[in-house]
Structure formats: C-alpha cells, structure tokens
Design a protein around this nucleic acid. Structure first.
Lengths: 305, 305
DNA sequence: CGTGATGTTGACGTTCTTCAATAAATGTGG
DNA sequence: CCACATTTATTGAAGAACGTCAACATCACG
C-alpha cells in the first residue's frame, strides 16, 4: 500500500530539520551507507539536549556511529557494560526478560535518547535494547566519557541531569501503570508519542506506530486485545483515526484528560448524536463525560500530615 | 499546619555543614537527642554501600544529620532542589501526587537509601518524601557533593552507580506492576522487604510493616482491600502469619515463586488436606500449584531476531 | 474513654483477560 | 509475480480478577 511504502520510507530516514551549517558532517542518510560516521562532543550534547561544554578545539574527541538493522540488538541482558549509546535516528524498544522468557517492554527510545544507563551499576546490562527500525546509534564509551567528565565538570553535571530525567520518567511511568485505566493508558501513550515526535520536528498529530499492539500492551501492562479494542473505541468516538499503524490524533485535549470511557451502551448513543451534529462537538461531548469516574481508586487519600 | 511550618522551615534553610573541625562522633542513638550529629565522608559512603575514597584527612568534610518525626516531609513536590538525603535510620515513603491530589507511592526508603535524586533534573523535586517513622537523615548538599566529586573521581563514579542502581530498581518495579497478579505482587513485596531488613541486620522473616494497607496498595497498584484479602489468604495457606502490621514469612520459597493462587474453592480443599498432614507439606502443595497459570499474558512473545 | 484512623470481610459489579475465529498485512521461495 | 506461511490486527463471547461499596472490628491516641 501507499501507506506501507510511505511508512518504511519514513522510518528509515525521515526528512530531518538539519542544521546544515555543520562543517565536518551533515546528517544526511546518503553519506552514511558506505562507511561509518563520526560526531564530535558538541553534536552529542546537542542530541542529548544538554549544554555543550565550551569546546577546547585541540582535544577534539570523536564518537563513532554504528548502524543497526531492524530486529538487531544494541545490547543484551547480562552483556558486559562498556559503552553508552545515543540514538541518532531510528526507533527502538528496551525490554526486560522475565524468568519464563517473556518480554516486558520498558521504553521506546528514539532520536536523542540515551541507552545503556542500566549497565553502569554492576557493569552488566539489566535490560535489552532492540531496534524496531533501522537505527543510527552513536557510541559513547564509558571510559571515554568518564575521562571527559574530569575535564569538563559541566558534562558530568549534565549526565547527572540526564539520569535524573530518566528516573523521573520512570517514576511517572510507575504512577501511570498503577493508577490509570486501560483507556487512559492508551490515550496518554498516544499523546506522549505525539509530543515526542513533534519535539523532533515531525508531525505530532499524524504518525506511524513503530511497534506492534503486543509491544504497546506490554509497555502499558495490558493485553494486545485490550490495546486494539481501545484504539478501535477511540476511532469510533472520533478521538483518533487509526488504520493499522497509521495514527492521527483528532482530539488531543480529550485524549490527555480522559480518565475512563463511558460504557459501551452509552457510547452508542453518543456516536448517534454525533452523526446528527458537526463533528467539532465531539470534543465537548467527550470532555463532559471525562471526569465522571474520577478518583476511582485513591480518592480517599488526602495529602495531609 | 505546625507540621507544614516545621517542614518548610527546615528544608528551606537547612543549616549547612560547614567545614568545621568537629570531632568525629560515633553513631550512637543516645548522643543525638539533644542536638545534631555529623558524619564524615567515609560514614556516608559506607551507608550508601559504595567504596569510600582514600581519605585525605586534612580536608575532612562533615555532613549534618537532621531528624524528622513521623509524618513530616523531607522534601515536597516542586520544592527547590538543594540537597540529597541519605537515610541513616527510620522509614519513609516517596510519593507522587496526581492532578486530583491522590498519592501514588513510589518507594519505601530505609537505612542506606538515597533520596532526592529526582530533583537534580530541573532543580525541583518531582516527588515527595514523607517520614513513616521518626527518621535520622544525613544532608548531602548537592553543591558540596559536586565539589567533592571534582576531588574524588571515584565518588562521582560511585554516584553514577547508585543512580543506575535506582534506575534498575524502578525498571524491575515497572515489570512487576505490569506483568504480575495481585497475589504475586504482594508476595514479592513481602519477600523483598524481608531481604532488605535482613541486609540491615534485622530479621528477614519477622518484621513490622511501617506502612498502611492503603500505602502498600498504592505502591503495588492495588486497592487496600485486595492487599488485605491477599494477606489473609496467605495467612490461611500458612505462607505467612499476619497480625495487623506484624508479619512473619513462613514459606519464603513459595512466596518468591508464586504466580497465582488457586481459586478460593480449590483453596478450601487444600487447607483441609493440610490440616490432615504436617504443616511442612504446605510448601510442596503450594509449589505444585505454582506454575499452573504460567505465562498468562506475554507467553507468545519469543525473543528472536 | 471516645474518636478517628486503620484493618477485615462480604456481596456485587465492572474491567480486563482469555480463548477463539477471522481477516489483513508481510515476508519467502519458487 | 504469485501462492504460501507467518506475523499482526480485529472482533466476539465468556469468565476471572480485581475494584467498589458497605458494615463492622480493632487499634492508636489524645
């Protein structure tokens, strides 16, 4: 299908808001295929969204790029930890494998994300990073990084900040996993994906999912069927449009504030009413329903000493 | 109110551990009650289970202790980040507060745990730490820590390791939250608490819970009723004995490997059978049942490229 | 001793999973 | 390029697991 073709084309190399003024290397796909690419510290910092240390141009340190094909592993559980990884392009998942060999998806890293932090402790990786599309990854050998930290105190500081950021992200994930309904989980998953895409310069309202329903379900603590059903429900309500992995967010506000969908029988009425009116009213309708089943679980908790 | 005032007063302007020629003080509880206690870097590192840097005795740095009464907050959400905290004694919870004021428990720190990491990013705390019992906390002002890191590279390295450890812990938490049944969550919660206690030199088999059923439920993504019922079920099965907050773990192996309990009607038969036999057989019985409902959710996932 | 916080237990309902059947998409080898 | 197998996605029906509501018991604390 056209969709499919478009999708693959896009995942492998989306048109990039390039900062073309770079002298050494421009981030263009064509340049890479014949060999490796290298990035300097400044590029790395930019990618990680941390302030670059004032470059002392003499001791210019370069970092190697490595390409992974979809399905390949960047690192595996138990593997010796030697290097951190920064995603320059492509999409991945990180997973935990439990005692029975089942995957538990922990995150879906993309451009600008840092991989491998979990290996610092124990010198072994606790999780596994798998490429969901072809990826371009920058190697940041931990020894090199440590040495650099000694020269640039800001760098060390920035790395603490990145790790802290990651920790907060996981905390929010924990909160979401234990407190939200299936619908709310899926809704937030979609909006947060959208936000990440738009931060990278892509459309935050229309994008392709790089992962299967199963992987989404694992990430959110749901079954793939529940994910599929929830997406279908959102689609019927006009909150999103979904065709396989092609997603368009139609009512981001409703998705963000949604806590629980009305029961199916009530929903039918709504969509009937919708068909009578202009579709712009959907947002209001749904918003009105949002907040009905508020505080189903922790509502008795009051944050007072 | 008084609490709030106290909290703010204390956290907003903690007395700084100045470089003072204070004599080193032994960690005896009695010595503290009339005033503050101070710890040197070596004690701090010991507490954090990281290698202490070879002490250059001249620039001996001391860190102040602060005591918190049960219910007081060590830091609150949004508060400016100035210092890290190390638990020297006592029990706490860290919580997130959602948009409706509901608490989400993230962890139950105890002796040797590091608090406040989430504040490094953004310079504001993303979570709240509340004392569940009277606590003795060591202040580790971030500025001081950063400065020390410049002198002792190992210290910085160790701090990366601690943060990585924390990250891995949270990853495992995510895995547990999304993959396990209520029974398995409670069982693992108990055994992991036991392990932490025994690492601290207390009994790992018999201890007091410092938190309410509600807090456990929040931590595990369950309601307080489910927690209570599950504990009762374990009690009936002879896996634990529970009386209010006093817990004794009777069959740790079964608790660790348990995935799902047999339905209540089946359970009755078991306990009848048990009463006929010696209670030592409980473990085998339950173990036999464990593994029945294996792989209910992610079992079709195969980790192959 | 009484009051509020905490814990237990039951009955019931809803959400989500499980199982199953089918369809659509993707990849493979001829 | 087409048949084929494989993976992925959709949808339905049935039931289990867990949450909700409620009543009561117990504990902690002033």
């Amino acid at each position: 299908m056209t969709t499919a073709a478009l999708t693959t084309g896009r995942t492998s190399q989306p048109t990039r808001p390039v900062k073309s003024s770079f002298p050494a290397i421009a981030n263009e796909a064509g340049w890479r295929c014949h060999g490796n690419l290298w990035s300097n510290l400044q590029e790395v910092c930019e990618l990680l969204r941390i302030p670059a240390p004032a470059a002392s141009a003499d001791e210019e340190q370069l970092f190697q790029h490595v390409r992974f094909k979809a399905g390949q592993r960047v690192h595996t559980i138990g593997q010796d930890f030697e290097t951190l990884y920064i995603v320059n392009s492509g999409f991945l998942k990180t997973v935990l494998i439990d005692e029975y060999g089942n995957e538990q998806v922990l995150s879906f890293p993309m451009k600008g994300d840092l991989l491998g932090i979990d290996g610092i402790h124990n010198q072994h990786h606790a999780s596994e990073a798998v490429a969901l599309s072809d990826c371009d990854i920058i190697l940041l050998p931990y020894k090199t990084f440590s040495a650099l930290g000694r020269s640039y105190a800001e760098l060390e500081q920035a790395m603490f900040s990145v790790m802290s950021r990651e920790l907060v992200r996981e905390q929010l994930m924990i909160g979401m996993l234990s407190a939200l309904s299936a619908e709310a989980k899926v809704a937030r998953f979609l909006t947060s994906l959208g936000e990440r895409f738009s931060q990278l310069g892509y459309s935050g309202k229309s994008f392709n999912l790089r992962m299967t329903r199963h992987e989404i379900g694992s990430y959110l603590g749901l079954t793939l069927e529940t994910v599929s059903r929830t997406l279908s429900a959102f689609n019927e309500l006009g909150l999103i449009s979904v065709d396989q992995r092609q997603i368009a967010l139609l009512d981001i506000h409703a998705l963000k504030t949604l806590r629980r969908l009305p029961p199916a029988r009530a929903r039918i009425k709504i969509s009937e009413k919708i068909s009578e009116k202009v579709s712009e009213k959907v947002s209001e309708k749904v918003s009105a329903l949002v907040g009905k089943n508020l505080l189903p679980q922790w509502n008795k908790e009051v944050a007072v000493v």
